[in-house]
């Protein structure tokens, strides 16, 4: 776990240095000096701090961080189902894509044994709550949900 923490910290620090350089490069194209000053200053701060972080991580040699013992497919499934819901949203409507996200999240978060009964209860209660919120947003708060 120690080496994972170090590699991750190094990579992320390097990413932030890169982000700072990209920002600095982007400011070259601004027409108005008023909009240049701030991002330039901040990106220099970012580059400096991220470099220090990079060097410190290199010197320290070990770091107590990392991804831990989580189960990867569950994390991935959760995010994937949320994203899929976003892409479905304009085509199948909000409620249906919400159900997709819910189903994905439910499977991802279910650590106990499945049984027909729990599946049914969980699914139904989720459906009821989601419909209620959909109705609240759509008809009371008048949000134009697709």
């Amino acid at each position: 776990m120690r080496s994972e923490g170090k590699t991750g910290s190094l990579l992320i620090s390097a990413f932030f240095v890169f982000a700072g350089i990209v920002t600095l490069w982007d400011t070259q194209n601004y027409t108005d000096s008023d909009s240049q000053v701030f991002p330039q200053t901040v990106s220099i701060v970012l580059i400096v701090c991220a470099t220090i972080s990079l060097v410190m991580t290199l010197l320290k040699g070990e770091e107590d961080s990392g991804f831990g013992d989580g189960i990867w497919w569950r994390r991935a499934l959760l995010i994937a189902s949320l994203l899929i819901a976003c892409f479905l949203m304009p085509y199948v409507g909000f409620l249906l894509s919400g159900i997709v996200a819910f189903a994905g999240g439910l499977i991802a978060a279910m650590h106990d044994r499945w049984s027909g009964k729990t599946g049914l209860i969980y699914g139904l209660s989720g459906l009821v709550v989601m419909s209620a919120f959909y109705a609240l947003f759509r008809y009371v708060l008048l949000v134009p949900l697709p």
Binding site: L78, S81, C86, G105, L106, A109, G126, M130, L141
Partner: peptide, 22 residues
Amino acid sequence: PKAVLVPLVGFMTLIGTFAIRN
């Protein structure tokens, strides 16, 4: 139960974020 809480909160993040600017 956590298995219901997580997807419900996930749904809320979708609908809540959408509602900010549709």
